[in-house]
């Protein structure tokens, strides 16, 4: 564990807490893409298949459980909760995310560290996570204005993978056999996808104005 990875995990945890805060405090999920939440639930379920077989550390196990439980809780809440579900922007959240699942799975079959069930699903979860934010970014683009908590949620969600890139650079230089190139390339793509969001987020922060995405 290094400071970059710990900062990344904490940033990721903060993004989840901000999302939960937004939904429970405002009893609304407007501006949140259910499709992105479903993709993230799938990412965690397919990435942590080794949850009960490979014990890494208490921290690792607890964080995996938190990520799986929180992503499923948000999906269930957005689908079932009678008050929250009414605020879901159903007609704006129309990204065909099944294509993202299919593309990630095909790529995982072609490019993986080892052609085993666990490794293919791990690579699938890595590729899918890079693309999972797309429905959310499209939804924000369409809805134009971004409320503070939603903006902070997406900001921290994007920032966490940037910390992981620093972590991979650090581990590359400090550990002999470290090669996590699938996660690294995918993590770079993931972070770049946030580039324009980060730009408009910074502009709104600098002008102390409400965040506006160009229609």
């Amino acid at each position: 564990m290094n400071i970059f990875r710990f900062a990344g995990d904490m940033t990721h945890l903060i993004s989840i807490l901000v999302l939960l805060l937004k939904i429970y405090a405002t009893k609304s999920c407007s501006g949140i893409s259910l499709k992105t939440q479903e993709l993230y639930a799938l990412v965690f379920l397919t990435r942590y298949l080794d949850l009960f077989t490979d014990f890494i550390s208490v921290y690792n196990t607890i964080m995996k459980l938190v990520f799986i439980a929180s992503s499923l809780a948000v999906v269930c809440c957005m689908r079932m909760h009678r008050v929250v579900r009414r605020s879901y922007d159903k007609d704006l959240d129309t990204f065909r995310h099944y294509f993202l699942i299919l593309a990630s799975f095909v790529l995982a079959l072609l490019v993986n560290e080892k052609f085993t069930f666990q490794e293919i699903f791990w690579a699938f979860s890595i590729y899918l996570e890079a693309l999972a934010i797309l429905p959310q970014l499209v939804l924000l683009q369409r809805s134009g204005n971004v409320d503070n908590l939603t903006g902070q949620y997406v900001f921290f969600l994007g920032a966490y993978r940037a910390f992981y890139i620093l972590n991979w650079i650090y581990r590359y230089f400090t550990e002999q056999h470290f090669s996590r190139w699938i996660a690294c390339v995918s993590g770079l793509v993931q972070t770049v996808l946030y580039a324009d969001f980060f730009y408009y987020y910074f502009i709104s922060w600098k002008n102390n104005a409400k965040m506006q995405l160009p229609a």
Partner: peptide
């Protein structure tokens, strides 16, 4: 196994 570096990251 050694060659399959355990996935120690989240």
């Amino acid at each position: 196994s050694k060659d399959q570096v355990a996935k120690d990251e989240l």
